Simulated scan of single mutants.
Amino acid sequence: MRKPELSGRMAKWSVHLSGYDLEFESRTAIKSRATRTLCRLTQRLRTRAEQDILNLEEDKGEQVWELHMDGASNAKGAGVGLVLKSPQGDLIVQAVRCEFKATNNEAEYEALILGLKLALDLKIRRLQVCSDSKLIVNHVNDCYEARDPRMMAYLDVAKELKNRFVTNSSEENTPDWRKPYLDWLQNDILPAYKKEKSTPRNPQSNGQAESSNKIIVENLKKKLEEIRGKWAEELPLVLWADRTTPKVEMASSLDTIDELRTSAQIRMASYRQTVARSYNKNVKVRTLQVGDLVLRKVFQNTKNQQVGKFAYNWEGPYKVESAVGNGAYRLVTLEGQMVPRSWNITHLKKYFT
């Protein structure tokens, strides 16, 4: 600590911690008491996590979320992408490939509808939607008129979803920028503007200079103690520490960093579960009945290498002999011969004669 200009971060901590009476004590051996403490902490954290999830459900409705979405289409197909941003900065990202042909505008509408449905599943009531499609934005805001039948159908669905959110009137929430000038012209009241950031030309604009001076004086007092006559020697070090220290309460930030991380993990876990439920509710379970004729997918190790590119991708038909469970089935050939192993339904499809 004799050469703080070489010790980097240690100088900042020495200035910050010098005002506290700190003593170092070595950690004692960890025994069975730690296990009991861990059990109590685990139960306490579980209870707190459940309460935090309930608070999330209550707060989501009143806070404003952001939805950024986009859709695109080309010769290979269409796809949509969306990002939901929470007021705390958490991001929920989704990308979906459309299994049907769609134009670029239709893909944009698909992204909008998917994002609105996801927000409703998350019980979000206030949502700000951001899109780069001028057509979609003006359709939804009633600035453009939709004439194409498909665009009209998409617009009806989008507006029906939009009406399920809380909308704020721009007149109630957006201040009129003309009011200061009208007051000046009508009532001879000069506009008053408060600068929120100081500049090198005018550092006293918002009290930043006075605040910095107060911090520097307090740090000098902590460093000098009884030898107050040497303040000129300590001043460069205190100035360096002040300039390189983030202007936040370092101690409180370090004390609450674990709680902030835990809260963020709880939020993201809750969001992931809700998004998974929202996605799975659209999944259609496919089942087969005993006696159904099916085709089995041909794998690389079962493909006839002599045929090459002209080999079939599906082989059969086979008959479903029994259901094993969890989407797996046992098959037999049309001659009644048992096929080895059970086969998952993802590798089977119905055969229609």
Rank of each mutant, 00 (worst) to 15 (best):
L84K: 07
V285H: 11
N187L: 13
N326D: 15
C130V: 13
E106R: 00
P317T: 05
Y193D: 07
A232V: 10
R286A: 09
E249Y: 14
L331N: 12
K162P: 02
F352E: 02
N138C: 13
L331Y: 07
G115L: 02
S198G: 09
S205N: 14
A311G: 07
S14C: 11
Y329I: 04
L185H: 09
I227D: 02
V320A: 14
S14H: 06
K134C: 03
G19E: 12
N313F: 15
K197W: 12
Q306D: 10
V238P: 03
D70S: 07
S211K: 12
E160A: 11
K12L: 02
Q208N: 05
M268Q: 08
E106L: 08
C130M: 11
D255I: 15
L185C: 10
I136F: 05
A241H: 00
Y181K: 15
V64H: 01
V339H: 04
A153T: 15
G8Y: 04
H68I: 10
L116Y: 04
W177H: 10
D176Y: 00
Q88F: 02
L288Y: 04
Q94S: 01
V238E: 11
D258W: 10
Y181V: 12
K31I: 03
E218N: 07
L122T: 00
T37G: 11
K350V: 11
T262D: 05
